[in-house]
């Protein structure tokens, strides 16, 4: 039996973020919350292998109660159980504090039912940090493979897996002992269209909610703001440089516009490699 554990996060859909032009503040209103896309693919991979090998998929998330929607979506996608770790005291966590809470939670879930593989997304699109996965693996002292793009094999007997990892330069085929953690890119699995019975189950499903009160005993100093070494010191809007000159082809004609633009580029010396030395 294969037991996969998947860490999923709810994120604001960054493609929909707007800035109030007057105040320069972020308009959060109406920005939809979505399932972090990489996590969804990671979950799809876990479910795919559960269907192949038999077993179950447990999903875990740390966040406010609104994350329940995301955990229900995980059930819709084929997860069997879902846990939300949620407490006001966790608020304001940076990646170090987040990885602490997740690691302790996973440790506990592993005691209940030993885990063979832990799936994370390669990064969460709200912060794009890609830090929590390696952080959790470090805390649990587990082998980890980041940027996983394909699971070639999971051998529960021999306790090992063969996984492909994509880097900037090549694809590595890596053999790892179980239990292992993967942080997954989108190619790891396609997200299937959930069967109706799974959707119906998800709509009725209430994830188990764990808090500071238990069952995991968290160290108060390591969670939330207190457990976060970094703080946001200030926020601002990006600065814009001075714009350069605009040449309108309608006014001067295409030929002259291009000539002028190239002349400027040449005198700035950026065409020297193409045309020989700058004037």
């Amino acid at each position: 039996m294969f037991h996969a554990l998947v860490a999923v996060k709810q994120v604001p859909d960054t493609t929909n973020i707007r800035i109030d032009p007057e105040t320069g503040n972020l308009v959060r209103e109406g920005v939809p919350a979505i399932f972090n896309p990489y996590d969804a693919h990671a979950l799809a991979a876990a479910v795919e292998w559960k269907r192949k090998l038999g077993g179950k998929v447990t999903v875990v998330s740390m966040g406010p109660p609104s994350f329940i929607v995301t955990l229900r979506e995980a059930i819709e996608m084929g997860a069997d159980e879902a846990y939300l770790v949620s407490d006001r005291k966790f608020a304001g966590a940076d990646t170090l504090a987040t990885s602490y809470v997740l690691a302790e939670t996973i440790r506990r879930l592993n005691e209940q039912d030993p885990v063979d593989m832990i799936f994370f997304g390669k990064q969460a699109i709200d912060g794009d940090t890609a830090q929590v996965g390696p952080g959790v693996a470090t805390r649990l002292d587990l082998p980890i493979l980041t940027y996983a793009v394909k699971i070639r094999d999971i051998d529960l007997e021999a306790r090992k897996a063969i996984v492909e990892r994509k880097t900037e330069r090549w694809v590595e085929v890596v053999e790892l002992p179980l239990p292992v953690m993967l942080t997954c890119d989108k190619e790891i699995a396609e997200i299937p269209f959930a069967p109706l019975p799974d959707l119906i189950r998800s709509l009725k499903y209430d994830p188990e909610v764990w808090t500071m009160a238990g069952p995991v005993e968290f160290d108060r100093g390591q969670v939330g703001v207190r457990g976060s070494p970094t703080i946001v010191y200030k926020m601002g809007t990006p600065e814009l440089p001075e714009p350069g000159e605009k040449i309108n082809t309608r006014e001067v004609g295409v030929e002259a516009a291009v000539r002028e633009a190239l002349a400027k580029a040449e005198s700035a010396g950026v065409l020297s490699a193409v045309l020989g030395g700058a004037k």
């Binding site: 269209f193 959930a194 069967p195 109706l196 019975p197 959707l199």
Partner: peptide, 9 residues
């Protein structure tokens, strides 16, 4: 019939 797998109601 719905568009989902096993989608009859």
């Amino acid at each position: 019939q719905t568009d989902r797998p096993q989608g009859d109601i």
